[in-house]
Design a protein around this nucleic acid. Structure first.
Lengths: 210, 210
DNA sequence: GAAAGTTGATAACATATGTTATCGTTAGCC
DNA sequence: GGCTAACGATAACATATGTTATCAACTTTC
C-alpha cells in the first residue's frame, strides 16, 4: 500500500530520468552529475541480458553508447516493446519501484557502454530533485508526453495497417530502422518477420521508376 | 508556446476530472459542487453529436446517465477510441486545452443526461483545486494510471489476437460489451464488425458442452 | 401500425498475414 | 581461415481477417 502510493508520487520524476533527461532539462544536470561517482561503468557486447524477466530490477540503466531493447516472452517467441538509444535511461519501472518480478527482459542490441546506478542512489536522487523549483512543471510535461506517446501508439494500432505503421516509423524514428535488426522491429509492429520483409519488398518496388 | 506549457501543467488536473472524479476523490467534491450552478443540464437522445471533428471543444462534459463514445473518421468509416459511462467526464483534451480543431467527435450511444461546464469555469475550477493540499498526490496517481492504461492497450495490441482482446474486454470491462453496439466495439478492437461477429460465434460454440 | 433505420448473424469470396522451410549473405568466434 | 550463428529474402501453403451482400429481428419515427 505504501509502496503503491510512493510509486505514483515518484513516477513522473522517474519519467524525467528515463527520457532525455540531460538533453531536455540541462537545469537538472547538476543533480545527475552529483551521482556520477555511484554509477558503475560497463562495456558489454551485443545481446547481453541486463535484466531477466522474472528478476527484480535493482539498477537504473543509462546508455552512453549503443542501444537496448525491452521485451517479454509470449509463448516461446519474444515481443519487443521499446527501444532505447544514446543518452536515454531506463529500468523495468514496475519491478524497480515495487520490488516485484519484472514483466520484461532488457537486452543490448549493439555493443554498448552503460552506466548502472543502484536503486538506493536513485531514490536519494529523486528525493533531492523533487525540491527543485522548476521540477513539477517538467515532471508533468514529461508525464503528459509519455501519455500522449502511448495513446498515439494505441490509436495507430486500431487505425493503421502494419505497412502504414512501418512507414510512420520510417518517417518519425528512422534511427530505429537503421540500427535495429528487422525481426525485433517486426515484433514491435506486431507482425511476423516474414511479413515485415514482404512490406519492405513491396515498398521498394513502389519506389522503382522505369 | 504559453498555451503548450499551460497544457502540460493542467493535464493531470484535467485527468482528475476526467476519470471518476467523484467516486475516487470525495475530498474534492466541494470544488465540484461549487461549480454546479454554472453547469448546463441536458437530456439528449441516442446518437446526439456533442462535438464534431474539426470544431473547437468549448465544454467539459459530465455524464449523469447514459454513455458516449469518442471516435474519428478514417477514410469513410469511423474508429472508436474510447467509451465513457455514468459519473465520468470528458472533453477532447487537446482541442479544449489549446483551442485547436478537435481530432475526435463525441457522440451519445444511449439517451443520456449530461452536464456541460463551459471552458471559462473549468479553468477557474482547475485554478482553485490546484491549491488543495492532497491535490498533487492525486493528480500524479491519476496521470500514472492513465499512462499505464494506454501502455497496456499498446502492449495488448502487439501481443494479443483480436479474439484475446475481446475476451480481455469481456473479463475486465463487461459493461462495455453489455451496453455498446457491437460495431463500435469492433472498431475499438481494431477489427471489422463481421470479424467480431465471427469471434463471438466461435466463443459461443466453444462453450457448448454435449 | 407501416416505413425506415439499426443491429447482428452469416455466406462467399478476396486479400492480408502467419508458418514453415530453404537459401545466400554477413558477422562473430576460435 | 574456417566454422557457426544471426540476419534477411523468398516461396508455398494455411489461416485470419476484410469486403460485400443478404436476411432477420428489433427500434425508432411519423
Amino acid at each position: 500500500m505504501v509502496y503503491r502510493l510512493w510509486t505514483y508520487l515518484y513516477y513522473p520524476i522517474f519519467s524525467l530520468m528515463l527520457f532525455h533527461f540531460r538533453d531536455r532539462f540541462p537545469q537538472l544536470n547538476a543533480y545527475w552529475d552529483k551521482y556520477l561517482p555511484f554509477q558503475k561503468r560497463m562495456e558489454v557486447s551485443a545481446k547481453t541480458i541486463l535484466l531477466e524477466e522474472g528478476e527484480r530490477s535493482q539498477n537504473y540503466i543509462f546508455i552512453e553508447k549503443g542501444c537496448v531493447r525491452v521485451f517479454f516472452n509470449n509463448n516461446g517467441d519474444d515481443k519487443t516493446v521499446q527501444f532505447f538509444f544514446e543518452n536515454e535511461g531506463l529500468a523495468s519501472l514496475d519491478s524497480f519501484m515495487n520490488d516485484i518480478p519484472s514483466l520484461f527482459s532488457i537486452e543490448t542490441i549493439e555493443p554498448s557502454v552503460l552506466y548502472l546506478l543502484p536503486k538506493k542512489h536513485v531514490l536519494q536522487l529523486m528525493d533531492e530533485i523533487s525540491h527543485e523549483a522548476a521540477f513539477s512543471k517538467m515532471a508533468m510535461q514529461m508525464t503528459a508526453m509519455r501519455q500522449m506517446h502511448y495513446m498515439n501508439e494505441f490509436i495507430s494500432s486500431i487505425r493503421d495497417t502494419a505497412e502504414q505503421r512501418y512507414q510512420n516509423l520510417l518517417q518519425d524514428r528512422p534511427h530505429i530502422i537503421q540500427r535495429v535488426p528487422q525481426h525485433y522491429i517486426a515484433s514491435y509492429l506486431g507482425v511476423s518477420k516474414v511479413h515485415l520483409s514482404r512490406i519492405k519488398s513491396k515498398l521498394a518496388k513502389g519506389k522503382l521508376h522505369f
